[in-house]
Nucleic acid binder design. Structure first.
Lengths: 243, 243
DNA sequence: CACGCATATTGATCTAAAGCAGTATCACGT
DNA sequence: ACGTGATACTGCTTTAGATCAATATGCGTG
């Protein structure tokens, strides 16, 4: 795949116009490829990380396990997302990141990342913007768990995933391929899998959205946005340019 | 108040041993004092911020409002916390920060902050560690909303606030002063105020914790930690030193 | 093919928390 | 001294979502 078609490049380009040299540096970062099998951990909770992964293919999820055995998925990762950035910049990982499907990543050592940032500030800004967007999504997720009903919350999640995939050219207003099981959704939405099933049925019967055989289909996009209170703006705000 | 007694200094010192010059720079940052009345906004959602505030006295909270009028409090701020850091580094604020009580802050322009970071890297690291800790707390909060019961969640919040206050010398294992109303708690915990009241009664009757006239008293700290699944470690992990 | 395992689906019951309604207390401002 | 508004507390009813139990459906593997 030519570098200007990689998911990360597409994603960053939406936000900052990358120069040829930015793209060249980005290509450098994509050299070391690795693959993970579905269900395996990319980052272990409590471990210090010396590298980040750029997700090229497949889906991941970051989650925390509770003493009682249940788990809460904090966020999903789709192609173009950077995994483990925080744990490199700051500290040991406080949650684990797992491959939902078979996954292909580019591994970037933290030293490479730092020098890339120094040489191409525009790239650094774009990546930080991405990290900031991810945080905003975590906050939005928190708000949903606290104050939205199961149906609203589910609708919101599907819309958000759709918006993220659209950025990397893997989704439209019609729908997108989604490899998640109802258990994944349950763990993200703070519901039981049984109830997720009922919620999906309701969305289907209300002709808003259908999720079948790995495909999410938006049946009435606007009504869905309205139901979820989905803010289309919040995913693409502008970063302040560092001096 | 001498600078080495300021809440922020205490907090950062827990994590990095600050040198005299670090402390001198910190003192510089505390020059421009401002006060806000309870209920007023320090940061408005959607506005770009040119300054951060170091909270010296009083409590704040950051929250998001929903279309239906309800709100979700994302985090509380106590003395020593830095407000609006993210919106200076990255982008416009995506939520508003409100003074819970009358509040005193030091205002720091982003240019001052940047030059302070350049001149005293150790200080930069300490502040970033604080920001990273705050994020970890947001994630923990999200997990609570998704997977913990009302009682567990409430216990967890009280413990977390206690731990944060202890760092700045404003709380012990016996308890701490807490200016929050049951409405604040409800908006943070994703409950109704009525139900918060019942939860508080249950905690009191089970002789775990009492909250009365602005004072949180731990009646059985260990049992509370156990009930909440509170991880005492997660607030004080170590940052990786930047090269 | 048959078997086991993961995933999806539906029905019946149970429960935690919401919603609604009302009372109590206290701090103010006049 | 008297309202008025914010906060705290309690009882009763309702509901969203959990829990328990069962039945599909498909898919890889011996």
């Amino acid at each position: 795949m030519p570098i200007h078609d990689s998911p990360l490049t597409k994603k960053l380009n939406v936000f900052v116009q990358l120069s040829d040299s930015d793209i060249a540096v980005l290509a450098e970062l994509h050299r070391r490829r690795r693959a993970f099998k579905a269900g395996h951990d990319l980052v272990h909770q409590g471990e210090a990380n010396k590298s980040v992964y750029i997700l090229a293919k497949g889906w991941g999820c970051s989650s925390k396990l509770l003493p009682d055995g249940s788990r809460q998925i904090v966020d999903f990762q789709v192609p173009g997302d950077i995994l483990g950035l925080r744990s490199v910049l700051f500290r040991t990982a406080d949650h684990s990141i797992e491959a939902v499907t078979d996954v292909e990543v580019s591994e970037v050592m933290d030293s490479e990342l730092r020098s890339a940032f120094v040489n191409t500030p525009r790239l650094a800004i774009a990546v930080l913007w991405g990290a900031s967007r991810d945080e905003a999504m975590v906050v939005e997720h928190l708000v949903g768990l606290g104050r939205r009903s199961a149906v609203e919350r589910s609708a919101h999640l599907f819309l958000e995933l759709g918006a993220r995939l659209a950025v990397v050219g893997m989704g439209t207003k019609d729908g997108y391929d989604c490899p998640l099981t109802q258990y994944h959704l349950a763990d993200a939405l703070g519901l039981t899998a049984v109830h997720v099933n009922r919620v999906l049925r309701e969305l289907r019967e209300r002709k808003l959205l259908s999720f079948n055989k790995g495909y999410v289909e938006f049946l009435d996009f606007d009504a869905l946005v309205n139901l979820a209170g989905f803010d289309t703006e919040y995913l693409d705000q502008h970063v302040r340019l560092l001096p």
